[in-house]
Nucleic acid binder design. Sequence first.
RNA 1: GGCCACGUGGCGGAGUGGUGACGCAGCGGAUUGCAAAUCCGCGUACUCCGGUUCAAUUCCGGACGUGGCCUCCA
Length: 470
Amino acid sequence: MTTPQLKLYNTLTRQKQDFRPIDPANVRMYVCGPTVYDFAHIGNARPVIVFDLLFRLLRHVYGAGHVTYVRNITDVDDKINARALRDFPDLPLNEAIRRVTEKTETQFLSDARALGALEPTIQPRATDNIDQMQTLIAELIARNHAYNASGEVLFDVKSMPDYGQLSGRNLEDNLAGARIAVEAHKKNPADFVLWKQSSDSEPGWDSPWGRGRPGWHIECSAMSERYLGQTFDIHGGGLDLIFPHHENEIAQSRCAHGTHAMANVWMHNGFLQVEGQKMSKSLGNFVTINDLLETGAMGGRAWSGDVLRLAMLMTHYREPIDFSVRRLEEAEAKLRDWQRAARGAELSGGDAPDPSVAGELADDLNFHRASVALDFIARKAGRDEGNAKHCLAATLRFLGFGLDSLITSDDGWQEPPHIASAIAARLAALNTKDFARADSIRNDLASQGITLMDYKDESGQRQTKWEMKR
RNA sequence: GGCCACGUGGCGGAGUGGUGACGCAGCGGAUUGCAAAUCCGCGUACUCCGGUUCAAUUCCGGACGUGGCCUCCA
């Protein structure tokens, strides 16, 4: 059984379409990564997880060596400057910025790992691609798509006849309700900055247009071209990036190269709320990934990365999510069921996921249907039918979940001695029908998170297994 | 003001122009000294109002609600 045709919803056409890579031997995907000025919050986790799932599926369909996934790290940004000045006022600016970005980047990578995300193939930094950005800007000026005004280089949106295709906006729409004061030096209010001047107290690079720094959108155009080419397969990010960020990336890349497309498929994940409210610092429901992993910020306890991953994937990636304690609890229970059913399976490197699960995912990442298929396998695995246990384990691993959230008596090598002796004492009590004592031992262990399970072996003799949460 | 999503049973959540996906929780039962695990059974849901249709939760229009974008936010 082969994986069915992959279908993806394309924001550009507002339709689900069959996915046909430009080059099946090198499928290329770019996803907008973090701006490294602060801890990533739970909303930031969604694209990390969603596009990791897509990356895994693409590797499955086209081969692990035939997919290139680029996720950038934005380490030049005015928010970073502000944070650097606030946190390290006594250091030279460049040093202060370096401290902020390094620390934040390390934290982000550690969060992403905890969420079960594979490392992207390439994670380029904006500051390592300033030359590429300048080359692109020079090309835009040469082709009359950009102009220099008051020391800024601006993109001229009027020079692109079909500007606005991705977001479905035209320039008049934007004008009508624009709340921004039109800056006098712009030919058109929708024109956006490619390069801006830096004062002495701002980070800057020398350029043909003076010492300055890049605008917000140009880095993605430069880095995607460098690593994926002028036209590539998939570009992803959050819904909020459609306009203006992705719209402007498209404008820059297509106009600089004279191409008809920057990426063929544009994918956007939906937003989330926390306990029914929009997440904001003022409401006090702003949670970082790290808070969830290590503190009691939600529900008064910490949650594993696997639980966060499942809680996020339970809802289709384009739908809004209400992130809640109840959702986390449900994800945890589901994960525990799967892991319990998969217990004891031994995997080798090449074990493939179940075709029905991969098939559901192929339909625009329909994880929820995939999880229904997984429930079916888990049920069979629970009865230990055929190779269901093994299949379940391989599929869980494919989906990015760990297999070891439980410790059980099957892991004899680490069985704490007090459990063994308590079980022996309970069995002895049962032999004398001293149920009160047996139950008190059961309750005692339960208070330590240890669940006892009685069963009969082949000779009809009572045996006891146990398990506890890791 | 303009543009764009979304609104399914206690909760999560898919899907469809015509017999109530599925999971969790709950209830009943089998099994169990009691449990756990497992198994069997149990649910008159599609925001509202119009329209199209033999038939709408599904298509069209409108209302209401929630959220997003239009400002450097996933």
